[in-house]
Design a protein around this nucleic acid. Structure first.
Length: 133
RNA sequence: AUGGCAGUCCAUUCUAUCGCCUUGGAUUUCACCAUCCAAGGAGGAAAGUCGGGACAACACAGAGUAGCCUGCUUCCUAACAGGAAGGUAUCGCAUAGAGCGAUAACAGAUAGUGCCACAGAAAAGAACCGUCGAAGGGUUGGUUCAGCCAACAAUCGACAAGGGUGAAAACGUGAGGUAAGAGCUCACGCUGCAGGAUGGCGACAUCUUGUGGGGGUAAACCUCAGGCGUUGAAAGGCCAAAUAAACCAGGGAUGCUCUAUGGUUCAUAGAGUGAGAGGGUUACUCGCCCAAUCCUGGAGGGUAGGCCGAUAGAGGUAACAGGUGACUGUUAUCCCAGAUAAAUGAUAGAAAUCCUGAAUUGAGGAUACAGAAUCCCGCUUAUAGGGCUGCCAUCUUU
RNA sequence: GGUCUCGUGGCCGAGUGGCUAGGCACAGGUCUGCAAAACCUCGUACAGCGGUUCGAAUCCGCUCGAGACCU
């Protein structure tokens, strides 16, 4: 399948992001912390994603840019793991990926953590679409 | 050729696969979405936000005060705490002398006020020790009777040479002068103000006349001269969505008395008396302007999406011309990011440079500082490595 | 993005240009059979660099770090 990553797949609303990090359930797959909430359905997609690298740990904007781009790339290349959720029209899952390591990891280890966390998400929502109906 | 200094330019490159943002076009579609094609997509500092503008909103009869900034001259610039060319001072190098380079918040200490720890006599109207003089008395000593001489301490007066402390000591040297001395006077030197001559647009330089002055500190207060309206794109405008023109508190001025005239409450005019309330003038005061479905504050409710601003400009590049130079003018040519939880990327391979190691290959590692957020001009700070130009030194060849 | 404020031992915190107070904590000692309390003692402290000044924690400039506000 295609592995593109369009604008509508990103979570842009300030309000939803605030809600996600405040109330969403979370778990850790080092070096990532993943936040999850469900919301009302949006056109064209079932998942909206946001990537974050805290300024507390990485002072320089170039470092944060690098890590955010690696996160986004690893999600783009592996999002077929949760393909059954991607085109759900019944609800939208908001996912936030927070980079919590203090040092800059290379792409392969980030991708490993991304695959693992996406598998966990897929496991979690295996049966829930039916309940949501 | 090597090394150093200064200036200036560049800021790894290519290929494949998978992607992202903007614009334009095509197909499908009511439209969004989707697919395809084409073009473009971080910097010299994008950084710090330190100066200055453009732009925008508010304000703008005007005056004064406060506040902030700047401080040799002329020029450049839209403007600047920026730059250029000079002047002066200090320092360094060199020298017979010229000179070369670096640095400078480089107006005023003779407008006034303050401060100058410790040490020291004293840190700024001097006077502790001291020097000199005076008159007689005191004490001691000497001596020829009265007395005289010397020393000491005390009294009165004059003075500021000496005191070696300090970062800094009451202009420096010489002469005169005096009881002793002293810029007290004089000459030379340093320096302020006013004036003259010559050169220079000017700062200033050289010469000269008169009249004064004597510690430092203005990145202490300050004085003088010049400049500044305030706030910043989260400015500001439009559209959409949503809710509560509701609630609570405060204010809501243009007055009062007497007299006269007309008169039904009331109106007009004059005199006396009182109160100077709210909002705006985004630092303050005066002054000015505004108001009855009004103004201010409180608590609370809703929304937090889109478009414009916003990317053609004090624009870039080249040539020519002017100017010592910063820079300017003319002509030609080019269009060169526009995101918004925020694009400009990831992976693989190759090349280039450097380092480690090795001393033939091969191998391993590294490729800086750093990411636009309205836009420009400067400054400051960070920065692997490389290219070019100029100057200096050394060596080699001719 | 913009406008401001602050930085003093391990922690809190005072400080008109002239030897950087004070409290808590830590460590050592006295006391005690051992502790606690009390008393005594102790230290590379002015964010960094440069300038002004005879002399900077203080004044000025640059850099670094922390925090607040503006929608």
């Amino acid at each position: 399948m295609r592995t593109n990553f369009r604008k509508y797949e990103r979570l842009c609303s300030k309000k939803y992001i605030e809600n996600l990090f405040k109330k969403g359930e979370s778990f850790v797959v080092y070096p990532l912390r993943i936040y999850l909430t469900t919301a009302h359905p949006v056109a064209y997609t079932g998942v909206q994603v946001v990537f974050a690298v805290p300024q507390r740990n990485f002072r320089k904007a170039t470092q944060r840019n690098l890590l955010r781009r690696r996160l986004r790339e690893s999600y783009r290349n592996n999002k077929q793991i949760i393909s059954n959720l991607l085109y759900s029209t019944h609800f939208t899952i908001h996912i936030g990926f927070l980079y919590i390591a203090k040092e800059i990891e290379n792409y392969s280890s980030i991708e490993e953590a991304m695959i693992k966390s996406l598998q966990l998400i897929a496991e979690k929502y295996k049966n829930s679409p039916i309940e949501e109906k």
